[in-house]
């Protein structure tokens, strides 16, 4: 006789089903022999082969990874600075304004962000001749702009949960401010910075709206490529592409999680 499922468990199962069934069905269909995206024709790796011969898709993937790597790194650096500044210097002039401004991109409609960035880039080009046209550079800058806000908030949250006296203790033991930053602040912030970097990477990697606004001819990110393809009908090779992305993201998240938990747990004495 089957045991009755408790209410919370039922809710949990529905929730997970809602989140993951579309993804799993997409993964399943990426191994579909049939060229019709919605009918099962047996197992095959055919579409992965097709995908690797499709240089357009591959270029888009590489471009997206490149942009995500660069923008996530810059966003982490800038976002960490902003997060520390917001937390540490509690009472500098305009702190409230600054902290409101750093959070604005979180709630700003992407269409607005995209449009304003596009106008900004155009007028900047008219003024100083840089950036020349729209393309990879402008997409990268745009991605840094909106993802650093997320990093700043993650870093700030981590600092808020941390004992202030750690830094004072280091100072008290003779460390100059820069040493305190290197020895104490940054190591303790590492988990937050890694989490922020991953978040920034993901945000950049799947951004479609803002990228479309600030992109120029020849600079097609993966989401832009997929979106343009889907307009002509879903082909199974897109499923294969998406499956690869899911695999990469999963590996990345698992690795990052392990790094983060190891940081705090501490090894047993050897």
């Amino acid at each position: 006789m089957m045991k009755r499922l408790s209410f919370p468990l039922t809710v949990l199962i529905f929730g997970y089903a809602f989140l993951y069934i579309p993804i799993f069905s997409m993964i399943a269909y990426s191994f579909n022999k049939s060229s019709l995206a919605t009918t099962w024709g047996g197992f095959s790796l055919r579409w992965y082969g097709v995908l690797f011969e499709n240089s357009q898709a591959f270029d888009a993937l590489m471009l997206s990874i490149r942009i995500a790597l660069v923008s996530a790194t810059f966003a982490t650096a800038l976002g960490t600075c902003a997060g520390i500044a917001l937390y540490r210097f509690r009472s500098f002039r305009g702190r409230r304004l600054f902290s409101g401004m750093i959070a604005a991109p979180l709630v700003m409609p992407e269409v607005i962000t995209g449009l304003s960035l596009l106008l900004f880039f155009i007028s900047l080009e008219n003024l100083i001749g840089w950036p020349a046209g729209r393309g990879v550079d402008t997409i990268t800058i745009a991605h840094i702009t909106f993802s650093m806000a997320f990093v700043a908030i993650v870093v700030q949250a981590r600092l808020a949960g941390q004992d202030n006296s750690l830094e004072e203790a280091a100072q008290d033991l003779g460390a100059r401010p820069f040493r305190v930053l290197v020895d104490i602040t940054l190591p303790l912030l590492a988990p937050a910075m890694i989490a922020g970097w991953l978040l920034a990477f993901t945000l950049s990697f799947d951004d479609l709206v803002i990228s479309s606004f600030v992109s120029g001819p020849g600079a097609n990110t993966l989401p832009m490529y997929i979106f343009s393809k889907v307009k002509l009908g879903v082909k199974p090779d897109i499923n294969a592409l998406a499956t690869i992305i899911v695999a990469l993201v999963t590996i990345g998240v698992v690795v990052a999680m392990r790094l983060m938990t190891r940081k705090d747990g501490g090894k047993k004495p050897g």
Binding site: D163, S165, L166, E168, A169, D172, A175, D264, G266
Partner: peptide
């Protein structure tokens, strides 16, 4: 004279041991 150049050391109420 900043804290790192003073001939004093402090034991903090929270101990402030570096967790890492």
């Amino acid at each position: 004279i900043p804290p790192h150049r003073r001939p004093v050391n402090m034991m903090f109420q929270s101990y402030a041991l570096f967790p890492h």
